[in-house]
Design a protein around this nucleic acid. Structure first.
Lengths: 116, 116
DNA sequence: CGTATTCGTTTCGGGTCCGTATCAAGCTAG
DNA sequence: CTAGCTTGATACGGACCCGAAACGAATACG
């Protein structure tokens, strides 16, 4: 059973979730950072810099810098791959799981309250 | 009939729409810019700088700069209020309507293709 | 071995955004 | 007419992001 939205509903949902993020005290992540974060939390591991860059069609420095920022926020963590020490494996954190979960809750709540 | 989403669906929808924006050639708008744009296109006019700043709980320079950027992209336009020439009225544009409509289409498409 | 290749990071110059404070123009009331 | 308020724009210093290129470390391969 597909999820069916009318144009006004789709845009209204989008806006109310964005608005919740703007009103929140938490510093906004950029569109790219958010896409990276959700990829890490929704796609199965392992996640490498190169793999993330390919999935989003961005350059590697974009991933490195995004991980710097989100790492400082404790939303993700980095670890050397002991099997091939050139690789860096990106892992989830407790704080990041909570953060992503909260976003999901917001989307669900705003979708539920959508005018019919 | 409310729109019901499960956590995985909500986050998957959010990610796929963000991903579509990242992959698109169009330069990403910031979270705030997008929230401002959708407010202009979803809420009834007239829209003033002060009013938008209050609705989003941000300072006026944030609105001014966002309108500078989005104005350069032709997504919105500014006009003096002839009744009270201190005010600036923000109006929609044809390009902006198209842009917003495209976003709505993307959301609807991604929602339809969501796994059950 | 030693040379190539791969991986992630860093550097560079340039651009945008932020919050605070300040500004000029326009309105309003005494 | 003028003092005071409102409105939106601007200046400033600091922070972040971008793409391209160069970099060191680790691995692959002849």
């Amino acid at each position: 059973m597909p999820v069916t939205l009318r144009p006004g509903q789709a845009l209204g949902l989008w806006r109310s979730v964005l608005l919740a993020q703007v009103l929140d005290d938490a510093p906004d992540l950029t569109t790219r950072q958010m896409a990276i974060l959700l990829t890490i939390y929704l796609d199965p591991p392992p996640h490498t810099i190169r793999g993330l860059a390919a999935k989003l069609s961005v350059t590697k420095p974009v991933i490195t810098r995004a991980l710097d920022t989100m790492g400082a926020m404790k939303l993700v963590s980095r670890h050397r791959d002991e099997a091939d020490r050139r690789n860096v494996l990106v892992r989830r954190t407790v704080e990041g799981s909570l953060f992503v979960e909260t976003i999901g809750d917001t989307i669900i709540a705003k979708a539920r309250d959508l005018p019919t």
